[in-house]
Nucleic acid binder design. Structure first.
Length: 485
RNA sequence: GAGCCGUUAGCUCAGCAGGCAGAGCACCGGCCUUUUAAGCCGGGAGUCGCAGGUUCGAAUCCUGCACGGCUCACCA
């Protein structure tokens, strides 16, 4: 008989004995992790004197049957707690019911807290009941679930047997909470803007296309919320932020998932210099929250968020690292040729000056930026939504934050001039850049006046990767996109 | 999209100079009232990713496909 059939039989037996296969509730007053937290440090004699009764519940991870006594570990997903079943406590009849339980089953337990002679915190069961039967066996108990594909497709199994997975997503939640707190303390309002866009914009990326039937209208899943958030600043919301999903119809890699989470925020009257200081503060708070300090490790290398971080100019840095003189980097033909020269045989070489510059930057600079580093003052051709640099018309007031070789944040003094913005959009369209459309509605909004504004986008998934020491973005996304099986 | 690697029991993995498909965990039966990778005895469990080919004979060699991983490409 297959395991599933055996377990169905077990369930039938339990039903005959009066157990509900799918009960409606259980008074689990004491969470496993709370019991562990509250009594882990307690003395044995102390517990014996206090006779503390608990009512708890969880999934059975392991069972050790020894005739008239049985030990099991249950978990609430965070902590493990040992349960002790004994015939002379439960009675012969009740004790015998447990033979129909298996690992993986959900169980409700009431009993007394004590410590075994090896000192492990344990609940001496006075009563137990079935909360759900697992008809399929759990993955192996000490190797856990290793198969990466199964871990992502059946994340619930990964969560049951791999404690580290639960930790990552607990940390992700804490990071998000911390970010919200940080922004709320500074007077920000959280908003939600459309995820379905009729005009593409806010980033350079290929979109997903969908269709609304009643309106008979094609829509894009947003590639960025940027243009909507700035409309809100025009509308007088001087400090707004949004945390939400963006969708980009591009390749998948250890650093890219087609849907990913971004924080974007806009602060009126500020510029990008202010944002760099603010970004240092934000990441220091996250580091304190997760690491309890400003120093940690990523993939075996020391990472230090102690401010101030290096601020390196894009063109100067690229020139330094590549050995190409700065004047040459402004020579479109030279850069295109150079990029083509260095480009691997397969694949599509950069088609525009902007892409070629970007390629050179990735090749010579990006991966070296391990410690938190701001790369500042990007060329205008790379930054269609950023304001021209106050001292150098070929540049913009823009920075990107790199940590562990990853681009984690992107920010600028926002372009506020509607005519200039229109010209930049048109220029993009002329260059046939991805995600480029002339958003006339946005130009109109700008025409009502956008005050000086600083805006920033922070990649949440990558930030979580850094603070959970995860080498792959899929480790920090509960259900990463996989091919249909 | 390209190159390389992988896919064997529910899980973790061995087996691949072509010759009866294996182990541990899990599961079932027996013994066992402080175990914790419990232990001891016995047992059941497989479309060897899928399809074709070579061969007396294929998990093993060859081809194609599917899914996954890594690297590259794409990607502010």
């Amino acid at each position: 008989m297959e395991e599933k059939e055996i377990r169905k039989e077990r369930l039938k037996e339990l039903e005959k004995l009066g157990y509900s296969p799918h009960p409606y509730f259980y008074p689990a007053e004491d969470a496993v992790s709370d019991i562990v937290k509250n009594f882990r440090g307690a003395k044995e004699e102390e517990l014996e004197k206090l006779k503390i009764k608990v009512s708890t519940a969880g999934r059975i991870l392991t069972i050790r049957r020894m005739g008239k006594a049985t030990f099991l570990h249950i978990t609430d997903g965070k902590e493990k707690l040992q349960i002790f079943l004994r015939e002379n406590t439960l009675g012969k009849e009740k004790y015998s019911h447990f033979k129909h339980f298996n690992t993986g089953d959900w169980i409700g337990v009431k009993g007394l807290i004590f410590k075994t002679k090896t000192g492990e915190l344990t609940v001496l069961a006075e009563d137990f009941t079935l909360l759900a039967k697992s008809l399929l066996p759990l993955p192996e108990k000490w190797h856990g679930l290793q198969d990466v594909e199964v871990r992502f497709r059946k994340r619930y199994l990964d969560l049951i047997v791999n404690r580290k997975t639960r930790d990552i997503f607990e940390k992700r939640a804490r990071i998000l909470r911390r970010i919200r707190k940080f922004l709320e303390e500074r007077g920000f309002v959280e908003v939600e803007t459309p995820m379905m866009h009729s005009v593409l914009g806010g980033a350079a990326a290929k979109p997903f296309v969908t269709h609304h039937n009643a309106l008979d209208m094609d829509l894009y899943l947003r590639i960025a919320p940027e243009l909507y958030l700035k409309r809100l600043v025009v509308g007088g919301m001087e400090r707004v932020f949004e945390i939400g999903r963006n969708f980009r119809n591009e390749g998948i890699s250890p650093f890219h998932n087609p849907e990913f989470t971004m924080l974007e925020f806009y602060w009126a009257y500020k510029d990008y210099n202010f944002l760099m200081d603010l970004t240092e503060e934000l990441f220091c708070e996250i580091a304190m929250e997760v690491w309890g300090g400003l120093k940690g490790k990523y993939q075996g290398r020391d990472l230090d968020f102690t401010p101030p971080w290096k601020r390196l100019k894009f063109m100067d840095t690229l020139s330094d690292r590549s050995g190409i003189p700065v004047e040459k980097l402004w020579d479109e033909d030279f850069v295109m040729k150079k990029a083509l020269e260095l480009f691997p045989e397969e694949g599509t070489p950069p088609s525009t000056y902007g892409k070629a510059l970007d390629f050179l930057f990735d090749k010579f600079v990006k991966e070296e930026l391990f410690q938190p580093t701001f790369i500042i003052d990007f060329p205008k051709v790379l930054s269609p939504l950023a304001k021209e640099h106050r001292n150098e018309p070929r540049l913009t007031e823009r920075f990107e934050l790199f940590v562990a070789g990853m681009e984690v944040a992107n920010a600028f003094s926002e372009l506020t001039d509607p005519d200039e913005q229109k010209a930049r959009f048109e220029d993009q369209v002329r260059r046939k850049e991805e995600g480029a459309e002339v958003d006339l509605d946005y130009i109109e909004a700008l025409s009502y006046g956008l005050p000086p504004t600083a805006g920033e986008g922070v990649g949440i998934d990558r930030t979580v990767m850094i603070f959970t020491d995860s080498p792959n973005i899929r480790e920090v996304i509960l259900f990463p996109l996989l091919r249909k099986k």
